[in-house]
């Protein structure tokens, strides 16, 4: 059974602050990334792509983890708010996984001389991307709220469980085939100012995520209310 009594996703007091906060955080992070952080001694300015690439990747993983939690929440309680959170987070996750892959390619070409390399982390991210595109496709082809939510929840849970297994298997495969491990963004040798910039970037992206999530959840809730509301109106009119 679906209940309409639901908690708001993000407490109302914080909500209005999210938009200005993410704008300010984005400006600060951009300034730090472009001006304040030192130029990389080896790679040059191209290394600054990292400040987009790494936070996007963090956000993608965070978003899919939220999809997982929300999917479990839906199967557990059948509250529509969980389904709204799941779809919102999945869309944002796909967006930022795409951004991660594109930024990674842009960074890889001048640094390694190739757009793409078959490295475990890249491969896992690519598989994850395809998996959640499939998730959104499954959603778009299902019609009614309850069934769509249940089916997507199953797909959302399977996808998250699958990510570490994919990573493990391709890491094993690479170890076996002794492919060169080229990808070492950051590492212990990261300059203090670079690290600070990266942290601010991650924080900025996370605030942006919260803002986008809240907005998208509201949209989905409005859509759900329209369907559920029309049900109740018709019922009242017929009674």
């Amino acid at each position: 059974m679906i209940t309409t009594a639901f908690p708001r996703t993000i407490p109302m007091r914080i909500r209005p602050a999210l938009a200005p906060a993410s704008v300010v955080a984005a400006l600060v992070a951009t300034a730090m990334a472009l001006v304040w952080a030192p130029t990389d001694a080896v790679q040059g300015d191209v290394q600054r792509v990292m400040y987009v690439h790494v936070p996007s990747a963090w956000l993608a993983y965070l978003a899919f983890l939220v999809v997982f939690v929300a999917s479990v929440g839906w199967l557990w309680s059948k509250r529509p708010v969980f389904d709204a959170i799941a779809v919102a987070s999945a869309e944002i996750g796909v967006l930022f996984t795409g951004l991660t892959l594109i930024a990674g390619s842009i960074w890889a070409k001048p640094t390694w001389g190739v757009w793409w390399t078959w490295e475990p982390r890249l491969l896992t991210t690519a598989v994850m991307f395809v998996m959640y595109v499939g998730y959104l496709l499954l959603r778009s082809l299902s019609l009614d709220l309850e069934r769509r939510a249940t089916r997507s929840a199953v797909a959302g849970i399977v996808a998250v469980v699958n990510v570490p297994i994919v990573h493990l298997s391709v890491t094993w495969m690479n170890a076996l085939h002794q492919l060169p491990s080229v990808l070492r963004p950051g590492g212990p040798a990261l300059d203090d100012r670079m690290l600070a910039t990266l942290i601010v970037g991650v924080v900025a992206f996370t605030i942006l995520y919260a803002w986008m999530l809240a907005a998208r959840v509201d949209l989905e809730r409005a859509r759900q209310d329209r369907v559920l509301g029309s049900l109740l109106l018709k019922r009242a009119a017929g009674a």
């Binding site: 595109v133 998730y135 496709l137 082809l141 994919v166 391709v170």
Partner: peptide, 12 residues
């Protein structure tokens, strides 16, 4: 839809 959903999950 089935191959699209199944193939990435079956990578491992």
């Amino acid at each position: 839809l089935v191959p699209v959903l199944a193939l990435p999950v079956l990578v491992p």
